[in-house]
Design a protein around this nucleic acid. Structure first.
Length: 639
RNA sequence: GCGCCCGUAGCUCAGUGGAUAGAGCGCUAGGCUCCGGACCUGGAAGCGGGGGUUCGAUUCCCUCCGGGCGCACCA
């Protein structure tokens, strides 16, 4: 019986015999602040007091008395405390033996198929190097994918490439106008374009008439089948390859690349429009500010109705489609309700051994495996909330109710720079304002490049490793340093609540002590050490609790957290909240560290006890590794 | 103007309609005759202000103050 089943079962048992309208899932369970009260408590009597018009304490006593004869094995004892809590005390020896028995079986969380989820993340404009803002997107998206897979969903990760936007056009213009020379031996192409993008934007500022050229280039790119479009495609492809390489360093991979140019050339919107013209949700306006446009009426929708002009134009009076229109068609494709599909071809075999495919209108063939999602999650920063809301509401208005309900905008706050970080990048900062926050700006070239950050963290981690392991070769140290750097950065990128702005600071990102990724790895390496020591001494773990043994407090805490792992994963997955998982894993690692310091394993009093503790450590190590994998954090065996 | 988000310890962040609001960094006092100190055990220090709903509010509602963001037939 796992913890969810225990809660559910007990909740049902509590409600039996009570004449109240209450569902078992309405009963909340929490860990009491004081361990002497027990391990799991419910304040349900306090809620019932009003309904039943009785004193909460009396109700609690009645509930406990009714529950007493039905107690499952996982529970040792019940108690009641003021003002009316019902507390359960775990039977730790039983829980431990349960854990140790299921230890060899695969993760209990990998179970039933729950349907297909398409996650779109990364989506970086293919015109410059990825920066730490993009990295937050990719780390969140990747962790989400791992969480959903671990809880039984089929997940398809797509990376959408906007290769026909102004961002790419600017690079094309920059190449023509500024004639820059790329020295391949000195920097990668995405770094080269980073500067070029800044330079051309500076040029626009002094020569606004160049915007005309930009418009022309953009137009050619959108039309396709001309030298400018070919050039643009070359550039964006080269940049995409850089981005894929950067993300691969973090263990982030994809199933499919989808290109805006393919969406345009295949006429996704045109196809959708032909069918939607007769749809009641799409209206042709003959008067008012939107005369001559096809619009979706949102003036009766909560959240839009108070706006000055709530209706959304999908087709302009000149007959062209808006951005949102294309988005609607694309979202329809993701759900398999567009009635039109891409052509596909293999793109590259990724470092994880899996093939990445790409849409390709001219060299591709048909596939039936992509899209057709039950649920679509778009990982996009919170500034796009309005557009994502429009997208969802419009789908609903156009009759795609189910699809609208299954469209999720996974919105997160952006990454900005601390005054110190901004200063380091050469931004003029207000010296008096130490707490100042500085936005990153691609056009101005203000931002920390993802690869620069990794290189820097690797350098520091490698240095730390070298200090501890003078016997290692430089290669060994670097290999380990890379794994530690990935842990530090990934953890830093996902540990915050999605609504909090990350104010990026080098000192914090480089930190490897306390609540950080490397701490978690250390907690794994230490466990591994014990196990290896045991192995070389011929000591074997025995997956059994010694007869009559009462677990120590640190052992209890460890057992409890291990017992709660499936619930933590589920909570994080269902709540789409990677930070819930980091919080849990940190607690688990921390509990082991306390155990480690206070509880001798190899020097345990009896051989029986040593075997048990070895088994517990073994179980913990496996589950921590499982948890780290969900976070995309490597688990080296020593560091 | 309309809308969304945020304000918790010196700093960076967790947290929940319930019992004593938790971590890390920093500060401070300790700790390897014992499986690695990227560690552990203590200490000082906190829910922006004011109303309301509730048996109970840091959490929900209103308001004020302070901060961030978004609201095109643009892309």
């Amino acid at each position: 019986m796992n913890i969810n089943q225990l809660k559910e079962w007990t909740s049902q048992a509590l409600l039996q015999g009570l004449q109240v309208e209450m569902k078992p899932e309405e009963i909340s369970w929490e860990a009491p602040p004081n361990p002497t009260f027990g391990d799991l408590s419910t304040p349900v009597s306090l809620k019932l007091a009003k309904i039943l018009r009785r004193k909460p304490l009396d109700i609690a006593h009645d509930l406990a008395a009714a529950l007493q004869p039905l107690l499952p094995k996982a529970v040792d004892a019940l108690s009641v405390t003021l003002p009316g809590y019902v507390n359960m005390q775990y039977n730790y020896a039983y829980l431990a033996s349960q854990l140790l028995h299921t230890q060899e079986t695969p993760a209990p969380t990998a179970g039933v198929r729950k349907g297909k989820v398409v996650i779109e993340h990364t989506n970086i404009n293919p015109n410059k190097a990825a920066h730490i803002g993009h990295l937050r997107n990719s780390c969140l998206g990747d962790t989400l994918a791992r969480l959903l897979r671990a809880t039984g969903y089929e997940v398809e990760v797509q990376n959408y490439i906007d290769d026909t936007g102004t961002a790419v056009a600017d690079i094309v213009v920059g190449m023509e106008l500024l004639n820059p020379v790329w020295d391949e031996s000195k920097e990668s192409f995405d770094y080269f374009c980073w500067d070029l993008y800044t330079n051309i934007n500076e040029r626009y500022a002094v020569q606004p008439e160049l915007k005309e050229l930009q418009r022309k280039v953009l137009h050619d790119i959108e039309i396709g089948n001309n030298p400018t479009a070919t050039k643009a495609k070359e550039i964006s492809t080269q940049i995409v390859d850089c981005h894929l390489r950067t993300m691969a360093r973090f263990g982030i991979f994809y199933e499919l690349l989808t290109w805006e140019s393919d969406i345009l050339h295949l006429g996704f919107w045109k196809h959708a429009f032909a069918h939607l013209k007769n749809n009641d949700g799409l209206v042709y306006e003959t008067e008012g500010p939107n005369a001559g446009c096809w619009v979706v009426k949102l003036d009766d929708v909560e959240g839009f109705s108070q706006m000055e002009n709530p209706d959304k134009v999908l087709v302009r009076s000149n007959g062209t489609a808006t951005y949102v229109a294309k988005d609607i068609a694309y979202q329809m494709w993701k759900f398999g309700v567009l009635g039109l599909d891409f052509q596909y071809r293999p793109y590259v075999v990724q470092q994880n051994g899996e093939m990445l495919e790409t849409s390709d209108t001219y060299h591709g063939t048909e596939r039936t495996c992509y899209g057709r999602a039950d649920k679509v999650i778009n990982v996009i920063d919170i500034r796009q909330k309005y557009l994502q809301d429009v997208l969802r509401v419009s789908l609903n208005k156009l009759g795609f109710t189910k699809e609208a309900n299954n469209s999720v905008h996974f919105g997160y706050e952006v990454v900005a720079l601390s005054a110190a970080a901004a200063k380091e990048l050469g931004v003029t900062v207000d010296e008096a304002d130490e707490k100042g926050i500085y936005a990153m700006a691609g056009r101005k070239g203000i931002g920390v490049k993802a690869d620069d950050l990794v290189d820097r963290v690797i350098a520091k981690a490698t240095e730390e490793v070298a200090k501890r392991h003078p016997e290692h070769t430089a290669e060994e140290n670097t290999a380990l340093g890379e794994q530690i750097a990935i842990a530090a950065i990934r953890y830093y990128m996902i540990r915050y609540n999605m609504n909090s702005l990350i104010v990026f600071d080098f000192a914090e990102a480089l930190n490897m002590q306390g609540n950080t990724g490397p701490y978690l790895q250390y907690a794994h390496a230490r466990a591994n050490n014990i196990l290896e020591r045991a192995k070389s001494n011929g000591a074997l773990p025995e997956y059994r609790v010694p007869e009559g043994y009462a677990l120590t407090d640190p052992e209890k805490l460890l057992v409890r957290l291990l017992y709660e792992l499936p619930e933590a994963v589920e909570r994080a997955a269902e709540g789409l909240a990677p930070s819930v998982m980091t919080e849990y894993v940190y607690q688990l690692a921390s509990a082991f560290m306390s155990f480690y310091e206070t509880t001798p394993v190899m020097n345990a009093d009896t051989q029986e006890l040593r075997s048990f503790r070895l088994a517990l450590v073994d179980c913990y190590r496996a589950k921590l590794k499982e948890s780290l994998t969900i976070l995309g954090i490597p688990a080296p065996t020593r560091m």
